[in-house]
């Protein structure tokens, strides 16, 4: 059976509002990033793929199984929702055990697999701790552990790093990369750094449409030769912002080092520099709107 997710002509409506517009995507084994601003339709797409939302139009298959057969989809997908939480008064082990039973795992499998997974997500010492006593990062790691408890072929992770400190975020991304070695992992985020560090393939969603689908390098290439830095005075900053898309800036005394996007070399002191995913993402979003 093919280890691929195929999405053809997928549209999703909430009443009259169209949340997804004629999406076409193919997602293969590895980390796949879904990038877009809040409200772009990422969570809707994730929920459709996790069989939590019935699609309005189009065809979707997950590893050869049609999305309409929710029971079949549930067997092969793991899902970490955006606002992940568990019953606060039960222990980490009890929470995993309960979800393991719901996933149809036998007692012996659960006994073997839960400690293994808790060790993998660095929570082995916390298995007797109550869920409410876990830190934000620990909860997210527990979220990953529960999502892969039944060894799914597809892992769907919705905005997992929001609110985590930098160290936890790095640890979390590394964990996802390890998991993605032998399965499809779909990572939805609006944090560009997560995509840059973890995903080879990405899709960018904007207002329900896919505006980019390809490799991370391909996205960067789009902005190559268009990213400049310049040291300007604070007074000149407003003018620069009016003319160009400023992606970052750093203040040093009365001067500002600004990083911005321009189609052509803007002025003599501006230096061309290497584009990053963030620059490319900003370029893409604004280009599509005709703002560049």
């Amino acid at each position: 059976m093919s280890e691929v997710i195929k999405i053809r002509g997928l549209s999703q409506y909430y009443g009259k509002k169209q949340a997804l517009k004629d999406l076409n995507l193919t997602i293969e084994i590895g980390m796949f990033g879904l990038l877009g601003r809040n409200g772009a339709g990422k969570t809707t797409l994730m929920r459709v793929l996790a069989a939590l939302l019935p699609k309005s139009e189009g065809d979707v298959s997950v590893c050869g199984r049609r999305i309409e057969y929710a029971q079949e989809i549930r067997k092969i997908t793991g899902y970490l929702p955006q606002d992940f939480s568990m019953y606060p008064n039960i222990t980490v082990y009890e929470a995993m055990d309960y979800l393991g039973v719901l996933s149809g795992l036998s007692k012996s499998v659960r006994r073997q697999r839960i400690p293994e997974l808790l060790e993998r997500v660095n929570l082995k010492g916390e298995q007797r701790k109550k869920v409410k006593a876990l830190s934000g990062g620990m909860k997210r790691r527990l979220g990953i552990a529960q999502a892969i408890l039944h060894n799914p072929k597809v892992l769907i992770v919705d905005e997992p790093t929001a609110g985590l400190d930098p160290e936890e975020r790095v640890r979390f991304r590394n964990l996802l990369c390890e998991i993605a070695e032998d399965r499809i992992v779909i990572l939805s985020t609006h944090i560009v750094g997560d995509i840059e560090a973890a995903c080879e393939k990405i899709a960018v969603l904007d207002e329900g449409k896919i505006i980019y689908n390809g490799s991370t390098e391909g996205l960067i290439e789009m902005a190559e030769g268009k990213v400049y830095t310049a040291e300007i005075s604070k007074k000149e900053l407003d003018l620069l912002k009016q003319k160009y898309l400023v992606t970052s800036m750093m203040t040093m005394g009365n001067n500002v080092t600004a990083r911005f996007i321009a189609e052509k070399a803007p002025f003599a002191s501006a230096k061309l520099c290497e584009a990053g995913v963030e620059d490319a993402y900003m370029y893409l979003m604004h280009e599509k709107r005709g703002e560049i």
Binding site: L52, Q71, R74, L102, G104, H150
Partner: peptide, 8 residues
């Protein structure tokens, strides 16, 4: 949602 997406 965690329970909804389970096999049971």
């Amino acid at each position: 949602e965690l329970i909804y997406c389970r096999r049971a």
